[in-house]
Amino acid sequence: MRSKRHITKRAQQFAGRAEQTIRSVAKPLAKYGFPWRAPTVPRGIEVPEKPDTLGSNFETDWARRPLASVARSAFIAGPLKLMTAVIARPEVHGLDRLADLSRLDDSPPLIFAPDHHSHLDTIVMIRAIPPAWRQDLVVAAAADYFFDKRWKATFSALALNAIPIDREATGRQSADLFKELIDDGRSLLIYPEGGRSPDGWAQPFKGGAAYLSAKTGVAVVPVHIEGTGAIFGKGMKRPRPGRTRVIFGAPLTSFEDENTRRYNARIESAVGRLTEESVSDYWTAARKASTGSADRLSGPETASWRRKWMLTDRRRREVSGRNSRPERDWPNLGPRSR
């Protein structure tokens, strides 16, 4: 059997020959310099930077105009639905906790705050969020992933109604924008972790969702998403279809004398409780929460093997565990890295 190495070697030899051919064919082209080709910059010259219109500077206003909204609705109802169904097969729980609000004539905007395992989360969430909020949903998406190329940025803005946020910089500017959008009556999907989970356990929540909620008075809905990490987790090259589950929690609002940090902790533990609810049941989760014996959402602070080991145990009880893989007796150590 030919090894992969052999094939790579062959490919490289082939590339070498192709390179030689191109070199000889392209020889007459050499005399076509500037202006046929792009100019090179003389030494010591500082070319002024063109204002970067990608990443967090990407302008998304156009995506909320009527025509774009219509296109988005069609996309969400068609291709996105199909894609979600094929890849993620989501089951949605806990919608009854939002039922009262969704039955109102004018449903108040909400901030959805799920835990974050995969880029798929956004797609799954858009489908899972009830129609009352879906139409006006704005997604806070990583500027450096969803907005790094023009086609991606356009797609993200148009299809997902995404708004770029810079994960590195402090987001005063984006916070103002979000406030404005919420004031406009739009709902927001924001991942309080600020990034996807590297190992399956959640990362500590950042205060963004809590801050916005406290500032605007809009309720935060804690959400737990399960299974997306196994389908298209961090470091995976292509998705492996499987099952997912989305559990909505009851909307939370900030107490009068509560600071953002404590409010944030409350949101984090609410999501943790939903996680527990997902692997056991509502009652166990409630009891564990009340006795304070619930697992932290971000996992135990122990050696990394134990974190993974515990996760394996949990995974088995999760929906993704139902993706039968009988040949494997090994502990599930998270998504395969290659």
Binding site: G33, F34, P39, T40, P42, R43, G44, I45, P48
Partner: peptide, 26 residues
């Protein structure tokens, strides 16, 4: 506006624009 300046031509410098009556050349 950026001020005028003197460029020292090096090998990375592209050819320069010259007027040539009703034409131009590099």
């Amino acid at each position: 506006p950026r001020p005028g300046f003197v460029l020292d031509v090096d090998r990375s410098t592209p050819p320069m624009l010259f007027w040539h009556g009703e034409k131009f050349s590099l």
